[in-house]
């Protein structure tokens, strides 16, 4: 599903080594936390999963796509097999909750009938069916993040990538988001989540990949948040 094989990433501009000889595999249906200090390499991994960045050396395979050799035209195909949730939600402010979710389905050319059926379905999954006609500005941070999750799930992705999804939320809202992510994972979707939230990582008891200065320092099956000082 996701393979990082001896991956090194050096940014050309300042010769910064973001990832160094990194290797790990994520199987279908797993829930994996990526933890580490700022600059440890979490964002580089996320960007590589989305093919925003390519490895300097080594191999990255995501859903069968080789990120190193993927052509520009194939990138949309890769991204359609993924769902992405960002810390800042990235919703379209001038569209309703329904339209924000439907938008992701329009992009992949889904038929209108399917969109009308699927959007209420995913909104129910994140407990927001009653807010379909609201605009993002009328929602709390937690609700906005749930809309962003519904959008990520609209096209039934096999992998859900979450980049600090609870970073802007209080503990209660964060717990709600984690409960939904867990529910999604239970249904078979692989979840890869980059986070700084120690309490969440410790309470979930999922696989934890710890990074430090671009290198993998710990990979535990039911780990906790330990990034060192």
């Amino acid at each position: 599903m996701i393979i990082f094989d001896n991956v090194t990433k050096v940014y050309d501009d300042n010769k910064t080594v973001a990832l160094e000889n990194l290797s790990f595999t994520v199987e279908k249906g797993e829930f994996v936390f990526l933890v580490g200090h700022s600059g440890a390499g979490k964002s580089s991994i996320i960007r590589m999963l989305l093919c925003e960045e390519r490895p300097t050396s080594g191999k990255v395979i995501v859903n069968g796509f080789d990120i190193g050799t993927l052509s520009q035209k194939q990138i949309p195909e890769l991204r359609r097999s993924l769902g992405v949730v960002f810390q800042d939600f990235r919703l379209l402010p001038n569209r309703t909750v329904y339209d924000n979710v439907a938008f992701a389905m329009h992009v992949v050319g889904a038929p209108t009938k399917q969109i009308r059926r699927r959007v209420p379905e995913v909104l129910s999954l994140v407990d927001l069916a009653h807010k379909a006609r609201a605009y993002p500005s009328q929602l709390s941070g937690g609700e906005q993040q749930r809309v962003s999750m519904a959008r990520a799930l609209a096209n039934n992705p096999s992998i859900l990538i979450a980049d600090e999804p609870t970073g802007n939320l209080d503990l209660k809202r964060s717990d709600e988001i984690m409960a939904i992510l867990d529910r999604i994972n239970q249904k078979g979707t692989t979840v890869v989540m980059a986070t700084h939230a120690e309490k969440i990582v410790n309470s979930m008891q999922k696989r934890v990949i710890t990074l430090d200065m671009g290198a993998l320092v710990r990979d535990e099956e039911k780990g906790g948040y330990e990034v060192g000082i």
Binding site: P76, E77, A104, V108, R151
Partner: peptide, 15 residues
């Protein structure tokens, strides 16, 4: 921002 979101959800350049 909208274009970025479109790209992240898999929109082609022509879309």
């Amino acid at each position: 921002r909208e274009i970025h979101i479109m790209k992240y959800v898999g929109a082609t350049d022509w879309f």
